[in-house]
Design a protein around this nucleic acid. Structure first.
Lengths: 201, 201
DNA sequence: TTCTGAACGGAACGTATAGTATCGTAATCG
DNA sequence: CGATTACGATACTATACGTTCCGTTCAGAA
């Protein structure tokens, strides 16, 4: 049983890479416009200008299709500026820029909601999400190694602390994030981390 | 044209309050199980043991039905313990308890996602959401009046800071919130607020 | 150049569901 | 006790989706 490997099947018309990208792009667009559950393979096919069969030939269902499309969206960049504050500000700034420039703002909630009802999506999506946030968690770990933050601060939790407010505004107030808000958000989060938490240790 | 006011229509069989509650309850259950977009009026009718017409007679569409059902879920309690830390810990604790005891954890993401694609839902839902978070924002305002936190801290932003990490864990890690995590979460958020942010003013 | 085989876009088929209309029954008011 | 309205149940229509099939197109092998 040969798989559809690059050189295995050999003969025949090769799959169009152009169609591949068109499908993924259309998937992202529709994901942003109508959400995961309202996204249909037919809609993707029409938007991409391909036949439905072309999609079913490559992805068994819309689920892995959506996850692959989501994976093409930009995540946190791995920045190492030398200080936690510098890392966070750089990362969050580009992250917010990505939110403004890509469908991330609407795709994210849609996938998160579906995830809570669809365990299959969770299994496919969770590693992707974890990978996306890894640069952020790494920045906290570097800061801990540098002694910038208390060693007993949970890096995962700290990452949540930084991303959380953004997510909340995003999900519940309809993307009312102005670039000006990044600084106070980071400041607020930072003073809970860089200031020695003597009173709470 | 008389409305369906309490004493206006007078004659005829009155609407069953029992059916009303059964419909709202079934709506919440299904909202938690399948999400907003997969929720069907027919499904609600079956679950509630009522006819479809009974639902359409009272709600023009599933949208206001869902919003009304969501409004029945518990929100933040208005606690005034005298200190910000006490208020936050009490509020967040009961809030998390509510998350464990009600379908909030799955209903929330579902509505948030739909909101980003459906402006009509946003208009219905936003006042409800704002009202739910008001006790939290009020606690911050009281703290500011007491001088517990810097007067130039944005109460809305601070509320986001506290709720954010919970929302993130909830949405993207599948409700991995243990009650034990409440304390460190609050501590982390608090030291950014009660500690005078001299370096960032 | 010709042949082969897989992928292509488009169309057809069967299924499912939303929303409406209608029925006979039940319940309250005058 | 009659009038009026709501009730649960069923049938119906229209739409939309997933899936499969079909004739055509294209790249590589002979």
């Amino acid at each position: 049983m040969r798989s559809r490997g690059e050189a295995g099947a050999s003969a025949g018309r090769p799959r169009s890479e152009e169609a591949h990208q068109a499908i993924l792009g259309a998937t992202l667009e529709l994901l942003a416009e109508v959400g995961f559950s309202a996204l249909t393979v037919e809609g993707v096919a029409n938007r991409a200008g391909v036949g439905k069969a072309t999609i079913y030939r490559r992805w068994p269902s819309k689920l892995p299709l959506v996850v692959e499309a989501f994976g093409q969206l930009p995540a946190f960049e791995d920045v190492d500026s030398g200080s936690l504050e510098g890392d966070l500000k750089a990362m969050l700034r580009t992250f917010l820029e990505n939110f403004l420039a890509t469908p991330l703002a609407t795709v994210y909630p849609s996938l998160a909601a579906e995830r809570s009802h669809n365990p299959d999506l969770g299994e496919l999506l969770d590693p992707v999400l974890k990978g996306r946030r890894q640069p952020l968690a790494r920045a906290f770990e570097r800061a801990r190694e540098r002694g910038e933050i208390s060693p007993d601060i949970n890096a995962e939790l700290a990452a949540d602390l930084v991303v959380g407010p953004i997510a909340v505004r995003l999900f519940f107030t309809g993307m009312q994030i102005h670039p000006d808000m990044v600084e106070p958000m980071i400041d607020l989060a930072l003073c809970g981390l860089v200031a020695s938490p003597g009173g709470t240790s």
